[in-house]
Each structure stands twice: as structure tokens, then as C-alpha cells.
């Protein structure tokens, strides 16, 4: 079982990396919940350093048509970077044909990788909406616009069921901004 070979067809591995407080795990959760709402299978695992805020954070998500046995992400098809450090550390595990999404104000990627990468000023767009913390949903908007992993409607539903009522509108707008950025 080589690293480049996927164990199961109809299975996508996504890894999100950044720092504590950027909503990395929440973004993984929302995407996984949307997959579940569409009747797919999903497993979210997370890893983090010892710090509560500001330490490194990883969210790993597998979305599959079939039940998922081994739950860990080994070699992601999609890498989403919210910080330079995450890009440097996580890039080696990405599939050769894998795709990178990154915050272009926070991460600079190597020239040879530009063909498979999509950048977005996620944090800046989030700040324009009024809150930096919704940059995770800007990124999710970009992700589903570019990959159709789940539909926009289901992701909106997952978000509405998860986020407290007073922040729902803001998060939905962040999703929309990210989505429109690609379209």
C-alpha cells in the first residue's frame, strides 16, 4: 500500500492546518456534517499542540461513499492552509495530483505548485465582513465552489444547525463571499 495509492475509491481526504483560534476544527466539522446530511460517510480527527490558542492545529476529514474503516488521513487529496507553517509541514504528504487552497495573504507557496493551488485573501475578506474568525467559512465557500464535495445548500444547512443564532448570518455571508470568489 504505497502512499500515493488510495485504499478506497469514492473517498476524499482533506487536511486543514493552521493555528488555534482560526476555526480549523470547526471548518472540518461543518464540512463533515454536510457530508453526513447528504448521506455520505465522514470521519473527522484532529491533532493539536499543547497550547490552547496560538498553537498548531490540524483537522483531518475523510468523506466517502462507503463506510470508513481506518479513520486517519494519511495522504490528503486536498490541503487547506491557513498559515505558512502549516503549508511547510503538511505539503510533503499531499497526493501528487492533490490540490492546495491557501490564504494568500498569510501563505506564500512555491512557484511550481501554483498550477494546483488556489489562493484567496480569506482573512482580509472576513475582516471586511466584520469578523476575522469567519475566514474559515470564506475558505469553505471557495472549497465547495471549486470541488463540489458537498452542495452549497447542505453546507449552509450544516452551518445553520451548528452556529449560534446570533452569528448565523455573518457565517453564511462568509460562505457566500468565498463561493463567489471562485465563481
Amino acid at each position: 500500500m504505497g502512499k500515493a495509492k488510495k485504499p478506497t475509491a469514492g473517498r476524499t481526504e482533506i487536511r486543514l492546518g493552521g493555528f488555534g483560534g482560526q476555526g480549523i476544527v470547526t471548518a472540518g466539522y461543518l464540512l463533515g456534517k454536510a457530508a453526513i446530511l447528504e448521506g455520505k460517510h465522514a470521519v473527522l480527527t484532529k491533532a493539536y499542540g499543547p497550547q490552547i490558542r496560538g498553537g498548531w492545529v490540524l483537522a483531518n476529514l475523510i468523506i466517502a461513499q462507503e463506510p470508513i474503516d481506518y479513520p486517519e488521513v494519511r495522504s490528503p487529496d486536498i490541503l487547506i492552509c491557513f498559515a505558512q507553517d502549516a503549508y511547510e509541514r503538511l505539503r510533503p504528504d499531499l497526493q501528487p495530483q492533490g490540490m492546495i487552497l491557501f490564504d494568500r495573504d498569510l501563505v506564500s507557496i512555491s512557484t511550481e505548485e501554483k498550477a494546483r493551488a488556489i489562493g484567496i485573501p480569506a482573512q482580509q475578506l472576513a475582516e471586511q465582513l466584520g469578523k476575522r474568525v469567519v475566514s474559515n467559512n470564506v475558505m469553505l465557500g471557495l472549497l465547495i465552489a471549486s470541488t463540489h464535495l458537498v452542495s452549497k445548500e447542505t453546507l449552509e444547512r450544516a452551518l445553520a444547525e451548528t452556529v449560534p443564532p446570533q452569528f448565523r448570518e455573518l457565517n453564511l455571508r462568509a460562505l457566500e463571499v468565498g463561493f463567489a470568489h471562485f465563481a
Binding site: Y29, I36, H41, A42, V43, L44, T45, K46, I68, P71
Partner: peptide, 9 residues
């Protein structure tokens, strides 16, 4: 740790 922190249906 794996089973307790993993998120699934």
C-alpha cells in the same frame, strides 16, 4: 484518545 475525539455519524 482516537475513539473519544474522532467525530462520526
Amino acid at each position: 484518545k482516537i475513539v473519544s475525539q474522532m467525530v462520526e455519524r
